[in-house]
Amino acid sequence: MKVGLYFGTFNPIHIGHLTIANHLVEHSDLDEIWFVVTPLSPFKKKSSLLDNYQRLDMVHLATKDYDKLRPSDIEFGLKQPNYTINTLTYLFEKHPEFEFSLIMGEDNLKSFHKWKNNEIILENHSIYVYPRLSEGKVVNELKDHPKVIKVEAPIMELSSTFIRNEIKAGNNIRPMLPNDVWKLIDEMGFYR
């Protein structure tokens, strides 16, 4: 089985995340996409970042009606600060029957050459890249790399930061969130 790993803080998960993940799983050879919730580093305190399990709960709520989209807390038990290569190594040991690939926006691909052990990641894993409007260029080695697969997906310029700011300002952002995620945020008073 081919599994795409979509890493993020998902603070909160929104319709942009779901649209991209669903598009990729429907229009590529990926069988499933796992939303890998990145834990809060104990070395970084960010007041706007909700607790790991609150964010994981929102991902559960957002993906429960999608057969091919799954939440993952795989990084919660790994030593922090964590690097993607460590997560991939752990997943390969735990699930050798799966083929894991990364999912990232084109903006992240532009800095991929700076990632720890990026050569090893590319040797062993494909990267599915969705379009993003961003500055800068992709380094030449990655432009036509056989493991870098560009997917024509909708360009989503919706961000969790924008949503948090709108909630704090008291504006209605309900259409930008899955219904159950909106209900939880509203009931708990998150991001106010």
Rank of each mutant, 00 (worst) to 15 (best):
R70E: 06
M104H: 05
S72M: 02
H95D: 10
F10Q: 00
T89E: 13
T84Y: 12
L56V: 00
T87A: 11
F92Y: 05
D29R: 09
P71C: 01
R55P: 01
V59H: 02
D31R: 05
V25I: 12
P39R: 02
E93Y: 07
Y66R: 01
D107R: 07
I33W: 00
H17C: 08
P12Q: 03
F43G: 15
L78P: 07
I103R: 08
E106L: 14
L88R: 05
I20H: 01
S48G: 07
H17V: 07
P81V: 12
L50V: 10
F35I: 04
N22C: 12
P39S: 07
E93G: 05
S48N: 12
I74V: 15
V36M: 11
T19I: 12
Y90I: 02
K68Y: 06
D57P: 02
I33R: 04
T38N: 11
H17F: 06
N82C: 15
I74S: 03
L18K: 01
Y6H: 11
D51E: 15
F76R: 03
L91G: 00
K44Y: 07
A21M: 13
L18F: 06
N108Q: 13
K46D: 14
D29V: 13
S41M: 06
R70F: 07
S41F: 06
T84N: 09
M104L: 15
K64Y: 07
P96A: 08
Y53I: 00
K94L: 11
R55E: 00
I74A: 14
K64T: 09
L61T: 03
P39V: 00
I85Y: 12
P96V: 03
G105M: 07
E99Q: 12
S28K: 04
I85Q: 10
K94V: 04
S41D: 13
D31T: 11
I20F: 07
A62R: 02
P71K: 02
Y53S: 02
T89N: 11
E106S: 15
L69A: 07
G16R: 11
T38A: 14
D57A: 11
H95A: 04
F92C: 05
Q80A: 15
F10T: 00
T9V: 12
Y53L: 02
